[in-house]
Amino acid sequence: MSEVSFWEAAFLWRDPLIATSLGAILCALCGVFVVLRRSAFVSAAVAQASGLGVVLALLAPHLLGGEVPPLATGIAVGAASAGLFAVSGRNARIGVDASIALAYVIAGAASLVLGTLLPHEYERVHSLLFGDAVAAPPEEMAALGACALLVAVFYAALFPRLVFASFDPEAARAMGIRVGRLDAALYFVLGLSIAVATRALGALTVFALTVIPASGGLLACRRFPGAIAWAAGSALAAAAVGYYLSFVWSLPTGATIVLVLAATLLVAFALGRWRR
Protein backbone atom coordinates (compact mmCIF):
# COMPACT_ATOMS: atom_id res chain seq x y z
CA MET A 1 0.00 0.00 0.00
CA SER A 2 1.24 3.54 -0.70
CA GLU A 3 2.75 5.46 2.20
CA VAL A 4 1.34 8.79 1.04
CA SER A 5 -2.45 8.91 1.24
CA PHE A 6 -4.45 9.31 -1.93
CA TRP A 7 -5.77 12.71 -0.91
CA GLU A 8 -2.36 14.01 0.16
CA ALA A 9 -1.04 13.14 -3.28
CA ALA A 10 -3.71 15.08 -5.15
CA PHE A 11 -1.08 17.10 -6.99
CA LEU A 12 0.11 13.81 -8.52
CA TRP A 13 -3.17 12.42 -9.72
CA ARG A 14 -5.38 15.43 -10.42
CA ASP A 15 -4.39 16.04 -14.04
CA PRO A 16 -4.01 12.35 -14.99
CA LEU A 17 -7.39 11.62 -13.43
CA ILE A 18 -9.00 14.45 -15.41
CA ALA A 19 -7.35 13.11 -18.58
CA THR A 20 -8.47 9.56 -17.80
CA SER A 21 -12.01 10.73 -17.14
CA LEU A 22 -12.11 12.70 -20.39
CA GLY A 23 -10.73 9.71 -22.27
CA ALA A 24 -13.24 7.40 -20.60
CA ILE A 25 -16.22 9.51 -21.64
CA LEU A 26 -14.79 9.97 -25.13
CA CYS A 27 -14.25 6.23 -25.63
CA ALA A 28 -17.64 5.35 -24.17
CA LEU A 29 -19.43 7.75 -26.53
CA CYS A 30 -17.53 6.30 -29.47
CA GLY A 31 -18.10 2.79 -28.19
CA VAL A 32 -21.87 2.92 -28.53
CA PHE A 33 -21.63 3.03 -32.33
CA VAL A 34 -18.56 0.76 -32.36
CA VAL A 35 -20.49 -2.00 -30.58
CA LEU A 36 -23.81 -1.45 -32.40
CA ARG A 37 -22.00 -1.63 -35.74
CA ARG A 38 -20.27 -4.82 -34.59
CA SER A 39 -16.87 -3.21 -35.09
CA ALA A 40 -15.49 -3.97 -31.64
CA PHE A 41 -11.92 -4.47 -32.82
CA VAL A 42 -11.74 -1.07 -34.46
CA SER A 43 -9.66 0.35 -31.61
CA ALA A 44 -7.08 -2.43 -31.91
CA ALA A 45 -6.79 -1.81 -35.66
CA VAL A 46 -6.54 1.97 -35.21
CA ALA A 47 -3.74 1.50 -32.65
CA GLN A 48 -1.80 -0.69 -35.12
CA ALA A 49 -2.36 1.76 -37.97
CA SER A 50 -1.19 4.61 -35.74
CA GLY A 51 1.95 2.60 -35.02
CA LEU A 52 2.60 2.23 -38.73
CA GLY A 53 2.14 5.99 -39.12
CA VAL A 54 4.73 6.70 -36.42
CA VAL A 55 7.20 4.25 -37.97
CA LEU A 56 6.72 5.84 -41.41
CA ALA A 57 7.21 9.30 -39.93
CA LEU A 58 10.45 8.20 -38.23
CA LEU A 59 11.65 6.72 -41.52
CA ALA A 60 10.82 9.90 -43.43
CA PRO A 61 14.17 11.64 -42.79
CA HIS A 62 15.99 8.58 -44.19
CA LEU A 63 13.64 8.13 -47.17
CA LEU A 64 12.53 11.67 -47.97
CA GLY A 65 15.25 13.72 -46.37
CA GLY A 66 12.80 15.79 -44.33
CA GLU A 67 11.26 15.64 -40.85
CA VAL A 68 7.61 14.59 -40.40
CA PRO A 69 5.97 14.95 -36.97
CA PRO A 70 5.65 11.34 -35.73
CA LEU A 71 2.79 11.69 -33.26
CA ALA A 72 0.57 13.73 -35.58
CA THR A 73 1.31 11.32 -38.42
CA GLY A 74 0.44 8.35 -36.24
CA ILE A 75 -2.86 9.88 -35.22
CA ALA A 76 -3.67 10.90 -38.81
CA VAL A 77 -2.92 7.42 -40.19
CA GLY A 78 -4.98 5.83 -37.42
CA ALA A 79 -7.95 8.08 -38.12
CA ALA A 80 -7.64 7.59 -41.88
CA SER A 81 -7.55 3.82 -41.48
CA ALA A 82 -10.88 3.98 -39.65
CA GLY A 83 -12.33 6.06 -42.50
CA LEU A 84 -11.33 3.30 -44.90
CA PHE A 85 -13.35 0.75 -42.88
CA ALA A 86 -16.51 2.57 -43.89
CA VAL A 87 -15.69 2.42 -47.58
CA SER A 88 -14.61 -1.21 -47.60
CA GLY A 89 -17.35 -2.35 -45.27
CA ARG A 90 -20.27 -0.99 -47.25
CA ASN A 91 -19.24 -1.25 -50.87
CA ALA A 92 -16.74 -4.03 -51.21
CA ARG A 93 -17.22 -7.75 -51.11
CA ILE A 94 -15.84 -8.11 -47.63
CA GLY A 95 -17.47 -6.96 -44.43
CA VAL A 96 -16.30 -4.24 -42.09
CA ASP A 97 -15.11 -6.86 -39.57
CA ALA A 98 -12.76 -8.36 -42.13
CA SER A 99 -11.54 -4.87 -43.12
CA ILE A 100 -10.69 -4.15 -39.50
CA ALA A 101 -8.85 -7.46 -39.17
CA LEU A 102 -6.92 -6.76 -42.38
CA ALA A 103 -5.89 -3.31 -41.15
CA TYR A 104 -4.78 -4.82 -37.85
CA VAL A 105 -2.59 -7.56 -39.27
CA ILE A 106 -1.21 -5.66 -42.27
CA ALA A 107 -0.37 -2.52 -40.28
CA GLY A 108 1.13 -4.65 -37.49
CA ALA A 109 3.29 -6.67 -39.87
CA ALA A 110 4.38 -3.59 -41.82
CA SER A 111 5.36 -1.84 -38.56
CA LEU A 112 7.48 -4.82 -37.51
CA VAL A 113 9.23 -5.11 -40.86
CA LEU A 114 9.82 -1.38 -41.28
CA GLY A 115 10.78 -1.15 -37.62
CA THR A 116 13.86 -3.25 -38.36
CA LEU A 117 15.15 -0.19 -40.19
CA LEU A 118 14.85 1.75 -36.93
CA PRO A 119 16.51 -0.59 -34.43
CA HIS A 120 17.30 2.14 -31.91
CA GLU A 121 13.90 3.80 -31.91
CA TYR A 122 11.59 1.04 -30.70
CA GLU A 123 11.18 2.68 -27.30
CA ARG A 124 10.43 6.01 -28.92
CA VAL A 125 7.73 4.46 -31.14
CA HIS A 126 6.18 2.77 -28.14
CA SER A 127 6.27 5.83 -25.91
CA LEU A 128 4.82 8.03 -28.64
CA LEU A 129 1.90 5.70 -29.15
CA PHE A 130 0.92 4.12 -25.93
CA GLY A 131 0.29 6.16 -22.84
CA ASP A 132 -0.30 4.66 -19.41
CA ALA A 133 -2.76 7.03 -17.77
CA VAL A 134 -0.36 8.06 -15.02
CA ALA A 135 1.00 11.16 -16.75
CA ALA A 136 -1.05 13.83 -18.49
CA PRO A 137 0.84 16.55 -20.34
CA PRO A 138 -1.31 19.63 -21.11
CA GLU A 139 -1.29 18.93 -24.85
CA GLU A 140 -2.75 15.45 -24.25
CA MET A 141 -5.53 16.86 -22.10
CA ALA A 142 -6.24 19.49 -24.74
CA ALA A 143 -6.37 16.84 -27.48
CA LEU A 144 -8.72 14.64 -25.43
CA GLY A 145 -10.95 17.61 -24.66
CA ALA A 146 -11.03 18.66 -28.31
CA CYS A 147 -11.94 15.12 -29.40
CA ALA A 148 -14.67 14.84 -26.76
CA LEU A 149 -16.08 18.14 -28.00
CA LEU A 150 -15.84 16.96 -31.62
CA VAL A 151 -17.74 13.74 -30.85
CA ALA A 152 -20.39 15.63 -28.84
CA VAL A 153 -20.94 18.16 -31.65
CA PHE A 154 -20.92 15.42 -34.31
CA TYR A 155 -23.58 13.45 -32.44
CA ALA A 156 -25.63 16.54 -31.64
CA ALA A 157 -25.67 17.56 -35.29
CA LEU A 158 -26.30 14.23 -36.96
CA PHE A 159 -27.51 11.72 -34.37
CA PRO A 160 -30.86 10.83 -36.04
CA ARG A 161 -29.14 10.31 -39.39
CA LEU A 162 -26.32 8.30 -37.81
CA VAL A 163 -28.82 5.98 -36.15
CA PHE A 164 -30.88 5.53 -39.34
CA ALA A 165 -27.82 4.98 -41.56
CA SER A 166 -26.29 2.53 -39.09
CA PHE A 167 -29.48 0.57 -38.38
CA ASP A 168 -30.86 0.32 -41.93
CA PRO A 169 -28.43 1.71 -44.51
CA GLU A 170 -30.45 0.49 -47.48
CA ALA A 171 -33.58 2.41 -46.48
CA ALA A 172 -31.58 5.44 -45.36
CA ARG A 173 -29.88 5.61 -48.75
CA ALA A 174 -33.17 5.24 -50.60
CA MET A 175 -34.68 8.05 -48.54
CA GLY A 176 -31.92 10.48 -49.40
CA ILE A 177 -29.24 10.09 -46.72
CA ARG A 178 -25.69 9.98 -48.09
CA VAL A 179 -24.79 6.86 -46.20
CA GLY A 180 -21.28 6.45 -47.60
CA ARG A 181 -20.22 9.95 -46.59
CA LEU A 182 -21.84 9.64 -43.19
CA ASP A 183 -20.12 6.30 -42.55
CA ALA A 184 -16.76 7.71 -43.58
CA ALA A 185 -17.24 10.74 -41.32
CA LEU A 186 -18.30 8.56 -38.38
CA TYR A 187 -15.36 6.20 -38.71
CA PHE A 188 -12.97 9.12 -39.14
CA VAL A 189 -14.25 10.73 -35.92
CA LEU A 190 -14.06 7.37 -34.12
CA GLY A 191 -10.56 6.70 -35.47
CA LEU A 192 -9.26 10.12 -34.51
CA SER A 193 -10.72 9.84 -31.02
CA ILE A 194 -9.37 6.33 -30.49
CA ALA A 195 -5.90 7.29 -31.75
CA VAL A 196 -5.75 10.29 -29.41
CA ALA A 197 -7.12 8.30 -26.47
CA THR A 198 -4.65 5.47 -27.09
CA ARG A 199 -1.80 7.97 -26.87
CA ALA A 200 -3.10 9.15 -23.51
CA LEU A 201 -4.41 5.98 -21.86
CA GLY A 202 -2.84 3.00 -23.59
CA ALA A 203 -4.20 0.49 -26.10
CA LEU A 204 -5.68 -2.03 -23.64
CA THR A 205 -7.51 0.61 -21.63
CA VAL A 206 -8.94 2.26 -24.75
CA PHE A 207 -10.00 -1.07 -26.19
CA ALA A 208 -11.84 -1.84 -22.95
CA LEU A 209 -13.36 1.63 -22.69
CA THR A 210 -14.80 1.45 -26.22
CA VAL A 211 -16.33 -1.98 -25.78
CA ILE A 212 -17.27 -2.65 -22.15
CA PRO A 213 -19.32 0.46 -21.19
CA ALA A 214 -21.32 0.36 -24.42
CA SER A 215 -21.96 -3.37 -24.00
CA GLY A 216 -23.09 -2.71 -20.43
CA GLY A 217 -25.46 -0.01 -21.65
CA LEU A 218 -27.02 -2.38 -24.16
CA LEU A 219 -27.37 -5.09 -21.50
CA ALA A 220 -28.86 -2.83 -18.84
CA CYS A 221 -31.05 -0.46 -20.85
CA ARG A 222 -33.82 -0.91 -23.37
CA ARG A 223 -33.60 2.54 -24.95
CA PHE A 224 -30.87 4.43 -26.72
CA PRO A 225 -30.58 7.41 -24.35
CA GLY A 226 -30.32 5.06 -21.37
CA ALA A 227 -27.64 2.97 -23.08
CA ILE A 228 -25.56 6.07 -23.85
CA ALA A 229 -25.99 7.41 -20.32
CA TRP A 230 -24.98 4.05 -18.84
CA ALA A 231 -21.93 3.85 -21.12
CA ALA A 232 -20.70 7.33 -20.22
CA GLY A 233 -21.54 6.98 -16.50
CA SER A 234 -20.01 3.54 -16.02
CA ALA A 235 -16.87 4.52 -17.95
CA LEU A 236 -16.43 7.61 -15.82
CA ALA A 237 -17.07 5.71 -12.58
CA ALA A 238 -14.73 2.87 -13.57
CA ALA A 239 -12.00 5.34 -14.53
CA ALA A 240 -12.24 7.12 -11.18
CA VAL A 241 -12.55 3.99 -9.05
CA GLY A 242 -9.89 2.16 -11.05
CA TYR A 243 -7.53 5.07 -10.75
CA TYR A 244 -8.10 5.26 -6.98
CA LEU A 245 -7.60 1.52 -6.45
CA SER A 246 -4.48 1.46 -8.59
CA PHE A 247 -3.04 4.28 -6.47
CA VAL A 248 -3.79 2.90 -3.04
CA TRP A 249 -2.89 -0.71 -3.92
CA SER A 250 0.01 0.18 -6.27
CA LEU A 251 -1.51 -1.67 -9.21
CA PRO A 252 -1.11 -0.98 -12.96
CA THR A 253 -3.60 1.83 -13.61
CA GLY A 254 -4.90 0.80 -17.04
CA ALA A 255 -5.40 -2.84 -16.12
CA THR A 256 -7.16 -1.89 -12.87
CA ILE A 257 -9.57 0.35 -14.78
CA VAL A 258 -10.29 -2.54 -17.16
CA LEU A 259 -11.10 -4.88 -14.25
CA VAL A 260 -13.42 -2.30 -12.66
CA LEU A 261 -15.10 -1.95 -16.07
CA ALA A 262 -15.58 -5.71 -16.11
CA ALA A 263 -17.32 -5.43 -12.73
CA THR A 264 -19.71 -2.80 -14.14
CA LEU A 265 -20.50 -5.23 -16.94
CA LEU A 266 -21.60 -7.81 -14.38
CA VAL A 267 -23.83 -5.21 -12.73
CA ALA A 268 -25.33 -4.33 -16.14
CA PHE A 269 -25.93 -7.98 -16.90
CA ALA A 270 -27.68 -8.52 -13.57
CA LEU A 271 -29.75 -5.36 -14.01
CA GLY A 272 -30.78 -6.42 -17.49
CA ARG A 273 -31.86 -9.84 -16.25
CA TRP A 274 -33.78 -8.30 -13.38
CA ARG A 275 -35.61 -5.90 -15.69
CA ARG A 276 -36.56 -8.58 -18.20
Binding site: R161, F167, A172, G176, L218, F224
Partner: peptide, 22 residues
Protein backbone atom coordinates in the same frame (compact mmCIF):
# COMPACT_ATOMS: atom_id res chain seq x y z
CA UNK B 1 -34.24 -9.12 -40.09
CA UNK B 2 -32.58 -6.26 -38.23
CA UNK B 3 -29.81 -6.55 -35.74
CA UNK B 4 -31.58 -7.24 -32.42
CA UNK B 5 -28.89 -5.56 -30.30
CA UNK B 6 -30.23 -2.09 -31.22
CA UNK B 7 -32.09 -0.63 -28.21
CA UNK B 8 -34.92 0.90 -30.21
CA UNK B 9 -38.62 1.18 -29.56
CA UNK B 10 -41.14 0.99 -32.37
CA UNK B 11 -41.53 4.77 -32.12
CA UNK B 12 -37.74 5.22 -32.42
CA UNK B 13 -37.74 3.24 -35.67
CA UNK B 14 -40.68 5.20 -37.08
CA UNK B 15 -39.01 8.49 -36.16
CA UNK B 16 -36.01 7.53 -38.29
CA UNK B 17 -38.14 8.24 -41.34
CA UNK B 18 -38.00 11.95 -40.50
CA UNK B 19 -34.20 12.00 -40.17
CA UNK B 20 -33.39 12.75 -43.82
CA UNK B 21 -35.30 16.04 -43.61
CA UNK B 22 -34.33 17.08 -40.12
Amino acid sequence: AFDPIWPLSTLDVVRMGGAPWL
